[in-house]
Design a protein around this nucleic acid. Structure first.
Length: 664
RNA sequence: GCUGGCGUAGCUCAACGGUAGAGCAACGGUUUUGUAAACCGUCGGUUGUGGGUUCAACUCCCGUCGUCAGCUCCA
């Protein structure tokens, strides 16, 4: 018989001799709690100390820091109302409603200074479990209207509590560190607007972001990583390396300069090379279609606002002469009324759309000829250019653009073939990620959402096929329940880059919808018609977005097979130029991309110029190299020594091989 | 889209009511160099754009375009 007793997690752990010095919280019966708040325990209660360096502790520290920040803000800016202040992936934030002004960078410095005072005061965090009425009374006397709103949204069966350090209180379920003294490494990072409860119809609040770590060393490491990410920013490198540019005449639409276009095309030819091996057939499809196509595919209904509509002069002429029976333009456009008015006579039959996706084209191709089960699986690949109207606030360098192309393909197959197709896609994906030296990825399986289309049995079969394919490869996946599209479940592939960030690149998605809408059929061995399954899949996804990831992953140091130039020859002085020209010509004849720096700069300056451009190899030519007929090779900061001309060619040609051919 | 910040020479930035400047790049010359920036000179801007205020606007105000950050990881 166990008797319940009142104690604290800290006390309990101490009695059990399991309370190390650097403990900030505890997990009691699976729940994260404070060390210092009274709880009911029995002998059966399990308790575990949460070490200051664990991820759980980090969240507690950050949440406590958010409280301290809100305290500091209200001390410095009386009348400011608090809202919410959670811990997040890289730190924490707190949203404030401040009516008398905006937080400036100087304000952040002041707030941070006040926070340090609060930390130095070593104020304990005390939890108060209260009734709803008590909480209501307390926060309404403080005028904290947002907290009252939150209080209302807390389910009736949940306990309500507030936390106090010093004089300051906040409606909060905790847990918190025992005292402000535990918050030793804090930093406020930025201020930005955020809507109350994330809804743009609600008032705009001011959000202060900050971060906190168990110690200064960890904080410094984090700040250094942020700096590293800034240094690798693809927008900055794209400019510095002459890869791409933008122009306000085509917002969010990249112009790939010669060096960038080389890398772009290199990626496509790499993928294209693998398509032969994996049995894909590449197709080329139109850019602009009659609106009827998008009605069939369902995009007109669901995706119209994201599409660019193209109008020929024919359409305008037809409208003017009123020969065609039309519909009101304001039924087509969801745009400003004055635009709709200006265009109101444009006729529906002439409306056309620039493609945002390739799948409808591929469905037309599939349906154009009678298909037999012997034609399946049919894998149609398409690098076609897509246009999507993305909201201005979501645009970002190459990673979110309005025109791009994908390493897109659609596989038409039978239900039975699905698992094999998924497995084969998995092989392709692994080969590419390994080839591009981004071999680490995790997988998520997104399953049937509440609103879905098609038969549950098919959904179950598709989800099982996706899961089985992953397991068969000896991999695990995270389940994302209900995150699938309305037309089918999918696998998502999230790769980890060189500085530990995760990006979703690849995906394979089952589609029960489009074959239905396009009434696609094949004749089975039983001589009757069957509906094929359609798989959408991409390895890199948008090439533009992939490039943004790849540039940041490599910090601009592309592998030699992909780099715009593979080697720069630099001479020690003018008198070595003649031989350098001969050598450059012979390397070019061997198929290598060679630059020759014939400026009158000193050697050091030439090396610097080549390094800034991230050219993989630098060949130095001076007296010794002319005499011995070769070059001294350098890769990055590493000196590879002297290579005679023939060896140099062989060495560079080896490095210039794309991964597929290297491994073969 | 919304809120806020920012648009100055090709690039990175300064000047913040008195009429625009530096470094790098480019160009010309000198230098002939041994592993991440030689030296001298020259060119380069209706300060994104359209209006307004003022004797005077890069600077202040309004519109517009572009761009950057953020816009539930919920007490």
């Amino acid at each position: 018989m166990t008797t319940p007793m009142k104690t604290t997690a800290g006390q309990l752990l101490k009695e059990r001799n399991r309370l190390p010095n650097n403990t900030v919280a505890a997990v009691v019966d699976g729940k994260l709690v404070d060390l210092h708040t009274p709880i009911e325990v029995s002998e059966k209660t399990t308790a575990e100390a949460v070490n200051v360096d664990s991820p759980k502790a980090l969240a507690v520290i950050r949440h406590s820091t958010a409280h301290v920040m809100a305290d500091a803000v209200q001390r410095l800016f009386p009348g400011t109302k608090v809202t919410i202040g959670p811990s997040i992936d890289n730190g924490f934030y707190y949203d404030f409603d401040r009516r008398d002004g905006r937080f400036s960078d100087e304000d952040l410095a002041k707030i941070e200074a006040t926070m340090r005072e609060i930390v130095a005061a070593d104020l304990p965090f005390v939890r108060h479990g209260v009734t709803r009425d008590e909480a209501q009374a307390r926060f309404s006397s403080l005028g904290e209207t947002y907290k009252l709103e939150i209080l209302k949204s807390i389910p009736a069966d949940e306990e309500v509590s507030y936390y106090q350090h010093g004089e300051w209180i906040d409606l909060c379920e905790g847990p918190h560190v025992p005292s402000t003294r535990y918050l030793q490494a804090i930093k406020l990072t930025s201020v930005a607007g955020a809507y109350w409860r994330g809804n743009e119809n609600n008032p705009m609040l001011q959000r202060i972001y900050g971060t906190a770590f168990p110690n200064q060393k960890a904080l410094d490491a984090h700040l250094k990583q942020l700096e590293e990410a800034r240094a690798r920013d693809h927008r900055k490198l794209g400019k510095e390396l002459g890869l791409f540019m933008f122009h306000e005449y085509a917002p969010a639409s990249p112009f790939f300069l010669p060096r960038g276009a080389h890398v772009y095309n290199g990626l496509i030819s790499y993928i294209r090379g693998l398509y032969a091996k994996y049995g894909y057939s590449e197709v080329i499809t139109p850019q602009i279609f009659d609106k009827a196509l998008w009605e069939t595919s369902g995009h007109w209904e669901n995706y119209r606002d994201n599409m660019f509509l193209a109008l020929g002069t024919d359409a305008l002429e037809a409208a003017r002469s009123e020969k065609v029976q039309g519909i009101k333009v304001d039924e087509i456009f969801t745009v400003e009324p004055e635009v709709a008015t200006a265009l109101k006579d444009v006729r529906a039959g002439y409306m056309s759309g620039c493609k945002a996706m390739n799948c409808p084209s591929h469905c037309l191709m599939f349906g154009a000829e009678k298909k037999s089960y012997r034609d399946l699986p049919l894998r149609l690949a398409d690098f076609g250019r897509l246009h999507r109207y993305e909201r201005s606030g979501t645009l970002h360098g190459l990673s979110r653009v309005r025109t791009f192309s994908q390493d897109d393909a659609h596989i038409f197959c039978t239900l039975e073939q699905m698992q094999g197709e998924i497995a084969s896609f998995f092989d392709l994906l692994e080969e590419v990620y390994t080839g591009l030296e981004m071999p680490n990825f995790r997988i998520a399986l997104a399953t049937r959402p509440e609103k879905y289309l098609g038969e549950i049995a098919n959904w179950d079969a598709a989800e099982k096929a996706l899961a089985d394919a992953v397991v068969a490869k000896g991999r695990t996946f995270d389940l994302a329940p209900g995150e699938g599209a309305f037309y089918g479940p999918k696998l998502e592939f999230h790769v980890t880059d060189a500085i530990g960030r995760s990006w979703q690149l690849g995906t394979i998605q089952v589609d029960f919808n489009l074959p239905e809408r396009f009434e696609l059929e094949y004749v089975g061995s039983d001589n009757s018609a069957h509906r094929p399954v359609m798989l959408h899949r991409a390895v890199l996804g948008s090439i533009e977005r992939f490039l943004s990831v790849f540039i940041e992953h490599t910090a601009g140091w592309f592998p030699a097979w992909l780099a715009p130039e593979q080697v720069v020859l630099v001479t020690v002085s003018d008198k070595h130029l003649e031989y350098a020209r001969t050598l450059a010509a012979s390397l070019r004849a061997a198929g290598l991309r060679v630059l020759l720096d014939d400026s009158s700069d000193k050697l050091g300056a030439k090396i610097r110029a080549a390094s800034v451009l991230r050219v993989p190899f630098i060949g130095v030519i001076g007296d010794k190299e002319v005499t011995e007929q070769g070059a001294t090779l350098r890769k990055g900061r590493t000196d590879l020594g002297f290579f005679a001309a023939a060896d140099l060619t062989a060495k560079l040609l080896e490095a210039a091989q794309p991964p597929a051919r290297k491994s073969a």
